[in-house]
């Protein structure tokens, strides 16, 4: 067995998995609280990548940045996360909130409309061409290793930042007043409002957090893979969703584990399965079907989908 290939695939799988986990968290949080599949989530992730690109270029671009690389990176994340957070809140306010009491299928179709709207708005404004992040100019080509696993800087950054964000989110939901309000709202929205919890605000906060995580994932993706384009959110959204279902939609640890499994599976499929680099998405699709057939509630899910 070619171990160095295996380790390379593992590293890229962990990186991809971290991205999918961050996207999956957004799906899970929103599904937990509204029982709504936010189809536009993948497109929010795409917008995040573009916001990061604009921030990078507003700060002087990758070759001659105004500040040191670390500061520029930090600001890129801030811009993408805040921008996407606000976008998420706006989407909820405009496309989902008026439909809370509509037939179940209405918000799903509204979500589809938002998704297609965002995608084509991006096409309109950013154009159909790929944009480059030129990561190497910004942060160099150094690699770090943990045992046999060699990480490039963006890969390491992605994995570490993703873990950090997930820990922060878990603590927030478990401990803080607003986090508890989120949990109670997701379990029983009306009862939560009977406690005086401003449910609309809690839902807005949920969308903000989920979308900000997607925005962060968008920037990370761009740092690792270098190129972004207007259609990138579609497939990433599908895989993020697969991760959420795999882990048990509505469960935070589930989203993380699900993300890692999907990322690793995709990476190994690319390396080992026949024509993997062409059909990797089909293999992930097969994984989704398998999970749904064997354990529709996911690894961490309860029979009733209820927990955030």
């Amino acid at each position: 067995m070619n171990w160095s290939l295996f380790f390379d695939l593992t590293v890229s799988g962990l990186t991809l998995g971290s991205l999918y986990a961050l996207i999956a968290l957004g799906y899970s949080l929103v599904y937990g609280i509204l029982k709504l599949l936010n189809f536009a989530h993948g497109d929010v992730y795409m917008i995040g990548a573009f916001l990061g690109w604009y921030a990078l270029h507003a700060l002087g671009g990758p070759v001659n940045p105004t500040f040191t690389g670390a500061v520029v990176l930090f600001l890129m994340f801030v811009v993408a996360m805040l921008g996407c957070g606000v976008l998420g809140v706006a989407i909820e306010r405009f496309a989902y909130r008026p439909l809370r009491n509509a037939p179940r299928i209405a918000p799903l179709i509204s979500a589809l409309g938002v998704s297609i709207f965002l995608q084509n708005s991006a096409l309109l404004i950013f154009g159909a061409a790929f944009r480059d992040y030129d990561t190497f100019d910004l942060i160099g080509v150094k690699t770090y290793n943990i045992g046999q696993l060699f990480f490039s800087v963006p890969q390491l950054l992605t994995v570490v930042a993703a873990i950090g964000l997930m820990v922060a989110l878990t603590l927030f939901v478990a401990r803080s007043r607003l986090g508890k309000a989120m949990r109670s709202t997701s379990f029983d929205r009306e009862a939560a409002s009977m406690m005086g919890i401003d449910v609309d605000r809690v839902i807005s906060v949920t969308f903000f957090i989920g979308s900000a995580l997607a925005g962060a994932a968008g920037v990370m993706f761009a740092l690792v893979f270098g190129q972004i384009y207007h259609f990138m959110g579609f497939i990433a959204g599908l895989k993020g969703f697969t991760a959420a279902v795999l882990g048990g939609i509505g469960s935070i640890p589930g989203a993380m584990v699900g993300g890692l499994i999907v990322g690793l599976a995709e990476s190994y499929a690319t390396g080992y399965l026949p024509q993997g680099s062409t059909f990797q998405n089909l293999y992930v699709f097969a994984l989704l079907i398998l999970v749904i057939l064997i354990r529709p509630s996911g690894l961490f899910g309860k029979a009733a989908i209820s927990k955030v």
Binding site: F94, L99, I109, L112, V114, S115, F117, N120, L124
Partner: peptide, 19 residues
């Protein structure tokens, strides 16, 4: 892009007005 933008906006608007 315009056609799909208008269609997407229309879907959202229609769901809002007459689900």
């Amino acid at each position: 892009a315009t056609r799909l933008i208008l269609l997407g906006a229309m879907l959202v608007a229609l769901m809002n007005i007459r689900p």
